[in-house]
């Protein structure tokens, strides 16, 4: 099966459509509550970016955890990566109107890299907890809390998905780039080898 067909097939599945719908609904809600009235400063993107970052993180970790035991890792990963450009128009207007410091390429690249690396983290966690699969639904929120805790402990927002969503950061970019490339390489290698376990 060609990758495009596989990804299209994956994206029409109920779980990913629900994920897309859920993230979109959250973004629309964030826009509705943060969009300013007449004469007020438009700082809506910061809120929308935080919601997008956390929502995509939860979705990516969740799919990563559950994909650990399936052969469709690459297809699921690419489908998740495509969710990012599909939801970007929902925050593009907020980005334009808020005039944030973050450059436009950060606004596009950062969610893509973060989603990929969180998927990789989910894969690792899924493998590690293979014997206690009943815990899997709890892992995404646990990861979220753990990342926040780690950031507080280190006094460094490097791993904080809320703080890094709208603020450009070289360390975060470097880290997520390395993790994303590792995740992509692992998924491609697994597909080439036909390793489904």
């Amino acid at each position: 099966m060609k990758l495009l067909t596989e990804v299209a097939w994956r994206l029409r599945q109920r779980d990913l459509l629900q994920a897309l719908l859920g993230v979109s609904a959250l973004l629309l809600f964030a826009l509705a509550v943060s969009w300013p009235g007449a004469g007020e400063a438009n700082v809506s993107w910061e809120s929308v970016a935080q919601v997008r970052s956390v929502a995509l993180m939860l979705v990516a970790v969740g799919f990563g955890v559950f994909s650990a035991a399936t052969p469709e890792r690459l297809g699921t990963l690419v489908a998740l990566m495509l969710l990012v450009p599909l939801v970007l128009p929902l925050e593009a207007l907020a980005y334009a109107a808020s005039y944030p410091d973050a450059p436009v390429w950060w606004f596009v690249l950062q969610p893509l890299l973060d989603t990929t690396s969180y998927f990789g983290l989910g894969l690792v966690l899924g493998r590690a907890t293979k014997r206690v699969a009943a815990l899997w639904p709890l892992l995404p929120p646990l990861v979220f809390v753990a990342l926040l805790g780690l950031s507080v402990w280190l006094e460094e927002p490097l791993f904080n998905p809320v703080a890094t969503s709208a603020q450009f950061s070289w360390p975060h970019l470097g880290l997520s780039l390395v993790l994303a490339l590792a995740t992509l390489a692992a998924c491609v290698r697994s597909r080439v080898k036909g390793d489904g376990d």
Binding site: P85, L88, P89, A92, L93, Y95, A96, Y99, V104, F107
Partner: peptide, 12 residues
């Protein structure tokens, strides 16, 4: 998505 995203971002 590309058309809408680019158009909206260009409003910056």
């Amino acid at each position: 998505a590309a058309i809408l995203g680019t158009s909206a971002a260009r409003l910056r």
